[in-house]
Design a protein around this nucleic acid. Sequence first.
DNA 1: CGAGCTGTTGAACTTTGTCAAGGCCCGTGG
DNA 2: CCACGGGCCTTGACAAAGTTCAACAGCTCG
Lengths: 232, 232
Amino acid sequence: MHTEASRVHLLHEQQGPGSRDHKLRKLDTQPTTQRCRRDQEICGQEQPATHLYKVLSGIVRLCIIRVDGRRQIVDLLMPGDVFGFTSSSEYDSSAEAVESDTVVAVYSRRSIEALAETDDHLARTLHQISCETISRLHAQLLIVGRITAREKVGSFLLEMVDRLSAGTNVILPISRYDIADYLGISVETVSRSLTELKHRGLIELSGTRRVKIVDRHALEDGFGGPRFSNAA
Amino acid sequence: MHTEASRVHLLHEQQGPGSRDHKLRKLDTQPTTQRCRRDQEICGQEQPATHLYKVLSGIVRLCIIRVDGRRQIVDLLMPGDVFGFTSSSEYDSSAEAVESDTVVAVYSRRSIEALAETDDHLARTLHQISCETISRLHAQLLIVGRITAREKVGSFLLEMVDRLSAGTNVILPISRYDIADYLGISVETVSRSLTELKHRGLIELSGTRRVKIVDRHALEDGFGGPRFSNAA
DNA sequence: CGAGCTGTTGAACTTTGTCAAGGCCCGTGG
DNA sequence: CCACGGGCCTTGACAAAGTTCAACAGCTCG
């Protein structure tokens, strides 16, 4: 493990575009940061849940490996996002840095809970962060629950634009393989869907990572053939 | 709206099999219950998030209706479960009673947050409940993220057994249509998957709702075998 | 008793996973 | 500097699986 951990004052932390630096300020009393290289594991599935983490820079993915060897990405964390919540004593997923120089703040779960006992504001903040996680997971369920691969990829792109940029351009933070494991489809289908969206004029691609949203409404609506609901 | 709301002491509440009556005890200071009939809306998507709810009996589903009219079920609540968490000022999904005589406890969000300011234990409880929600959503993502419909239906059945019963028998709390919208597949595929699992001897069906798990391990493993198998 | 809802099954069609091959990019080592 | 190797990405062909449309059976309830 080439973990590089050091004690610094998080008040000086640099924030990404989706900055939420007002959150977890109180946790700065025991700040530790960890700088990770690509694919480095930050915490492991079924290991004791001793810490909470906040992404300071870079991207983190939460993964679960199935018995059949398939990998599922159950959350994608960007700067400002917090992870490590679990209702049991162990993490229910592992966390990995997606790119090199990903930096996370590390907080002792025990300390936080102790602090929250006396610090109302911290307790509120914790709750607010939990709610954000719940909303994010609802959004992911909506994306993964769509029917066709084009719809999944399309709404995934919109989610990335909304979370990572202010306009219509976005640089995808993860590989096609990661997208596949996030959406629950195969890499080839991800690739095909992207080129199809491009050919239909809904997006533009520069290189493999840079995407421009051309027709947001068509991406939202699902386009490409009507499909009807089961709703009673 | 045939809402029947009344002030009672929740300390006397009846609990279902997955009882967590130790949770939210402190909220009993302002207890209100609401009894709902089938398909009744408890709170609506994009309406002001003024309350939190706890299921006392029956089943509640959280739904999101897409622009194309399709419905997605983003959570399924059983007795003891709490819903209504959102990071914004509005609910991001609507909540509906699945069956008649579903009873929920209603808590003012404002009051709870005020109480949590001074009550450490309540704050902890809230956080714990949030974490349970997160774990439940991770589990749902794992189910929906599986590849084949048989795998989705199989792991859905296991989830229901684990949450609703102590043994291998379970009475499905929702219809085929609800299962379809929970798993993101069509009703017909749900039906076909169930009959196939039955023919393969992995489950037994009595009527349409009563299910017995015969081969849990095969259901867990995904059972990725081909449709036409000799190993009957 | 009929209307309506739920569930199942069949058949045609569409989409996706899988296997296979090849292109592109970049870092490394000769 | 260039060749090489190994990820990453794309594309094609085919088989498997899912959606859709359609029909029908069972059931409840007015």
